[in-house]
Design a protein around this nucleic acid. Structure first.
Length: 692
DNA sequence: CTGTCCTATCTTTTT
DNA sequence: GATAGGACAG
């Protein structure tokens, strides 16, 4: 018995001790998953496994950081630093930086974010002369991403014969070509090219030899390429441990594939399967509810949570007349309990399905002076000024990055307007050269004024000048000089008349400098490239606000709640059409919604309150939703067929505006237009200000 | 290039 | 009903 199995239950201990061969750990919510993972690695190291032969992959930076921290608490520092613990994406990025040339990409590739992707897709559609009204860039991007996540080539769609699919397939190819020309990869590409890299025999055997022990966290969220990576590297030695919970797979819409965890034993025959079913988080009442709901899913590993905690309150379910009353009820309940010192605000969460729901809750919370954080929303990196500066930096690092170039070429305004840019793009396409090259050839380009060309050249030479500093030791200096030399202050002056707003933006700009400073301090050998990598792959973890803090109530979506726990939880808006969401009902994806509900329920340690509204404004109309089918299930019943049918009918009816044979009876205000809205009381009178 | 009007859209968003 | 993005005019 090793010291790392002490204090663990039988199943946990078995998982920790199984260090060789394939291992599937089905870890229900609150069953000590992280503990098992970290103890298992510590145990392996104590048994002589070389730290550098261990590869542990997670989905978030946060999870990776936590894993490292907790292993560090268990073993000596030396061992930990040689472990490879990181997100799939960062692992792939590092590997491609090292061996990218083996799959035909430059090692100095850039990484493009969601914004860049959208720009690239718009450009692709324009070049293909597919109007955005026919195919929305966002939707198209989503489809392409899904294809990539399923490792499907564009041809797979093109052959379907459907017009839209053909367009998407074309857009896919064009979009990819655009990214390649700009020397950038999107997030999905990082994984795809890694798979490709592992197609190379030499590389594959190198990786197999190096990484003798694999561990994958949240395996239920694995998508196609991630699965291939695991299978390839681990396929020979088969020391593959995957940990996850099929009941918490909630990212199917992003290409995550539950079947991977369901079929693990087929992929890795004779796998040891350990089920962690003892829940140390919640009261039996809460666990009963969770079990009762999730039991209704058909495709899952059979299991049920057992509560280890003492009995507590039963789950409360409350219906309220409308969403206003719902918010009011919840906030008043919180207020009373906080006042009576039954719970600190920091131990309370309000969970909801969609991003618009928190509004009313925010309003009320502010009214009552209850401090709160809204998790999610706009990240620091989504702010325009931050993106601008980062685009400049990306352009410095990668002269071919046209996405970035186009973003900042006239920011601040340099007299290079839309028309000029369009001319440049057209000429670039026509002569098959880059936009930068067009600018260099500017004199021979019809339609470009001399002043424009001159200004564009000055812009390029500023960037070129900065480029000479990029490998230099002083990253911070580079960033500062860039901000000065491109005259970003002018941009702020132009865009923000209000001095306070301007000052605030300037603060954000300076924050980039701070980030660079931090990066330079933390990492040896830091340069522009390492900085940009860091920023690209660590989207939102920095910064205030986001982190659930000790003294603030948390407002967040069910998706962001996964992996967290709170003393008291309010699960709100539990109605047909919201949870399960309308779209999921349409798409026949109710099981994933049920998992979402399950995730929500299992976040609560001691007290769970579920609410739903009998009337709710949706898309400007007032609807009278039915209580969610999950509420029936919660009490061990089946939702009435009539409810399911009506729900289905509404989902289908609501989706296609062409066919509206007015489903069941709705409220009296059902399909009235604009004017009627005036009579609505106070709904959104007070415009929600910035969150506190 | 900026300001305005208009209209399409309205889940979730680890990287 | 709100919002964001595009089209169009000035």
């Amino acid at each position: 018995m090793s010291k790392f199995t002490r204090g663990l239950n039988a199943e946990q201990s078995r998982a920790v001790r199984t260090t060789k061969g394939p291992l599937l750990v089905l870890a229900g919510a609150g069953t000590g998953k992280t503990r098992v993972i970290t103890h298992r690695i510590a145990h392996m190291l104590s048994r002589g496994v070389a730290p550098r032969s261990v590869l542990a992959m997670t989905f978030t930076n946060k999870a990776a950081g936590e894993m490292k921290d907790r292993i560090r608490q268990l073993v000596s520092k030396r061992g930990v630093s040689d472990l490879t613990v990181g997100t799939f994406h960062s692992f792939c990025m590092r590997s491609l930086r090292q061996y990218g040339d083996r799959v035909g990409i430059r090692k100095a590739f850039g990484i493009c974010d969601a914004d860049d992707q959208l720009v690239a897709m718009k450009r692709a559609l324009r070049e293909l002369q597919i109007p955005e009204t026919t195919l929305a860039p966002r939707a198209c991007l989503g489809q392409v991403s899904l294809l990539k996540n399923r490792m499907m080539a564009p041809d797979a769609l093109a052959s379907s014969g459907d017009d839209r699919d053909i367009d998407i397939a074309q857009a896919y190819r064009r979009y990819d070509a655009g990214l390649r020309a700009s020397g950038v990869l999107d997030f999905d590409d990082l994984l795809l090219y890694m798979v490709k890299l592992l197609d190379d025999k030499r590389t594959l055997s190198q990786f197999r030899k190096r990484f003798q022990y694999l561990l994958v966290d949240e395996y239920q969220d694995t998508n196609g390429p991630q699965y291939e990576i695991v299978k390839r590297i681990g396929g020979e030695h088969r020391n593959v441990c995957v940990v996850g919970d099929d009941d918490q797979s909630i990212y199917g819409w992003r290409g995550a594939d539950v079947s991977k965890i369901l079929n693990f034993e087929d992929d890795f025959p004779k796998a040891v399967v350990v089920r962690l079913e003892t829940n140390y988080r919640s009261t039996p009442e809460i666990i009963d509810g969770a079990n009762a709901v999730i039991r209704n899913n058909t495709s899952r590993h059979e299991k049920a949570l057992r509560a280890a905690c003492a009995s507590g309150e039963s789950i409360q379910v409350n219906s309220l007349p409308d969403e206003e009353a719902e918010a009011q009820y919840v906030v008043e309940d919180v207020l009373a309990r906080v006042r009576d010192r039954l719970v600190p605000p920091g131990d309370v969460a309000i969970l909801f399905r969609t991003a618009i729901q928190p509004r009313l809750f925010e309003l009320r919370l502010r009214e009552q002076n209850i401090p709160y954080v809204l998790v999610g929303g706009m990240s620091f990196f989504d702010r325009k000024e931050i993106k601008d500066i980062l685009s400049y930096l990306k352009l410095v690092a990668n002269p071919e990055d046209e996405l970035s170039l186009l973003r900042v070429i006239n920011t601040p305004p340099r007299g290079i307007g839309l028309t000029s840019v369009e001319t440049m793009l057209a000429v670039a396409a026509q002569r098959s050269i880059s936009v930068a090259e067009v600018i260099r050839q500017g004199d021979s380009v019809p339609g470009l004024r001399a002043a424009t060309v001159e200004s564009a050249r000055r812009f390029l030479s500023t960037i070129d000048g900065l480029r000479e500093l990029q490998d230099g030791p002083n990253l911070v200096d580079l960033v500062k000089r860039l901000i000065r030399e491109v005259r970003y202050d002018r941009e702020l002056e132009r865009a923000y008349a209000d001095p306070t707003a301007r000052a605030k933006r300037w603060e954000a700009v300076k924050e980039v400098v701070n980030m660079a400073e931090m990066h330079a301090r933390r990492r040896r050998g830091a340069n522009l490239g390492t900085f940009l990598d860091d920023v690209a792959l660590s989207a939102s973890d920095e910064e205030e606000g986001d982190e659930p803090s000790d003294d603030k109530l948390t407002l967040m979506t069910l998706h962001s709640a996964k992996g967290l726990e709170f003393g008291e939880v309010y699960l709100v808006g539990v109605e047909e059409g919201l949870l399960p969401h309308l779209r999921s009902i349409q798409d026949g994806a109710v099981e994933e919604e049920r998992r979402l509900a399950y995730v929500g329920i299992t976040r609560a340690k001691r007290r769970l309150t579920i609410t739903y509204a009998k009337s709710r404004g949706r898309f400007g109309q007032r609807v009278t939703p039915l209580p969610s089918r999950f509420l029936y299930e919660l009490h061990g019943k089946q939702a009435p067929t009539a409810l399911l049918e009506r729900s289905q009918a509404e989902a289908v009816g609501g989706s296609s505006p062409t066919t509206s044979p007015t489903p069941a009876k709705k409220g009296p205000t059902s399909r009235r237009s604009k004017k009627k809205a005036v009579k609505r009381p106070s709904a959104a009178k007070q415009p929600a200000r910035k969150r506190g």
